[in-house]
Each structure stands twice: as structure tokens, then as C-alpha cells.
Amino acid sequence: MSLGQEILRGDRRALARALTLVESDPHAADDIIAEVYPHTGHGIVVGVTGAPGVGKSTLVDRLAGQFLARGRKVGILAVDPSSPFTGGALLGDRVRMEGRGSDVFMRSLATRGHLGGLARATPRAIQLLQAFGKDLILLETVGAGQSEVDIMGFADTTIVVVVPGLGDDVQAFKAGILEIGDIFVVNKSDRPGADQTMRELRQMLHLGPQRTWLPPVLSAQAQQEIGVAEIADAILRHSEVRLTDPEQRQRRMQEAERLVRDALADQLVRGVVSRSQADGRWNEVLAEVAERRLDPAGAARALHLEQD
């Protein structure tokens, strides 16, 4: 039986091994993805992002418990940064997770050099979890805070987590992070300044462009399970609004376009590179660029034109 079939039958070990494949070499998993792809795309993918230390992992864990209790099948992808020097990574998100046994399938992903707060394997990892039967996937980004807007492309609902008193409040709400949030959570709301943070957030959201969905600003103390049910409710509400949204089809098309463009770029690059390496042109051209005798775009053009 193929790995893909084993995943569709609900084999946890097969899922774990397939996740390793999509992480290590995206193309080694092409067959598996092709096999399971018709069984993906359902359910809700919830992205959770925010600065380091705001409580993303804890919130993800409590939401997992909340959705389990509501009968959802929960998967978690937690992304942590790889060291740019050694490639190593310390993946510590499990420390915040309560033991939920095999009910929740959680996988820690290292960024492995990918920027934007997520791992390169993220879309495929989501697809594998969905094929396995998970219908609520929690996706936690690395703790960055201002630029990890990648999450928007992968999550159906994006939660931005902030805490009171993180320096100048406005600082935390720069462009980008404010625009990607479908739900805002002010966590650790027993800390001083929580009310003010919520007020400022709401004001800024009201100033933004009018959308059919006005992102709610919710307070929580995830550690104590306070406010978590309300966040889960908001996720489900957002999901309903999203599904009835006339722009939904357009969004699906945009997602499809992004995935196909990525795959196309990948395949073309691999083709050109491997052929250039085979005839030795690759190293010649790299040397010319390194010695400033040729510019990078010119080099790329030369390489793929030579092969046409």
C-alpha cells in the first residue's frame, strides 16, 4: 500500500513519515500529494501569529482542547526558526502543550532557511493533515511580529496575539500585522494596560478599510483558559462568514494560482539547474557572476535560453 493510501486510512506513522518527506525534499513527496490532493481543502486552517512570548503556543494548546471538546479533529503545525549558521533548531512548542495523547496530531517544523515566519513545507504539511482527516488545523508561526504575513496565504482565519504593555502600543500594530488579522487576541489580559491596548486596537481597526468582517478584539488569559471559548466561537463565526462570502471562489482561485505558480517556478528552476550542472555550464556562469563579469538576471537568462 502506498504512503498516501496509508494516510487516507488514518495511519499516524505514515503521516509522520510523509511529513518528513515533504520537509526534506518537496519533490520526493510529489506522488503522495498527487494521491491525497482530492481529499484536502476541507475544514478550517487557523493561523496564530504574534511576537515572541505573547503566548501563542499556550493559546494553540487551549484552542486544541476547546475544539476537541466540540468534536473537531485537531492537528497542529508549530513552526520554529532554524539557525542560519548550523541549520539546527530547538523546537520547544510541545513544552506548552498538555498531554492530549494521540487525539491531537502535532508536528514541529523548523523554518530551514525559509523567511516569512513559516516553513517551506507548510502548505503540503497542511494538505497531509487534511488527507489524514483533520478538519481543524492550528498553524503557529515563529514569533516575529511585523513581517510574517505569509500566514495569510495558508490560513483561513488568522489570529494575531498581542499582550498589554509591549512597549509603545502603536509599535505593535504596524501595517501588515494589523491587516492580516481576522481576530485579535489581547492575551495575559490581567496585566495592566489591557483595556487600553484593546481600545487602541479597536480604534485602529475601525480606521482601516471597511470590510464585510470587522475583526473582533478579544481578551484572554490562555494559561487559565479564560476567554478561549470566545475565541473558538469567533473562529467558527469567521468561517461561516467566509463560506458565504461571494469572494470565496475568487480566493480559492488565488490560492490555486499561488500554489501552481510556486510549483511551476520550482520545476522550471530544477530543470534548468540540473541540465546546466550536467553540462558544466552552471559553475562557469556562477564564476562569471561572482567575478562581476555577468549580472545575476543576465546569467539566469543565458542559462535558460541556452537550453531552449
Binding site: S82, S83, T86, G87, G88, A89, L90, L91, G92, R94, V95, R96, S108, A110
Partner: peptide, 8 residues
């Protein structure tokens, strides 16, 4: 250079 998952 390894990926280390720590459980707590």
C-alpha cells in the same frame, strides 16, 4: 545542526 524537540 540537529532539530531538537524538547518535551518539557
Amino acid at each position: 545542526g540537529m532539530e531538537v524537540i524538547y518535551t518539557g
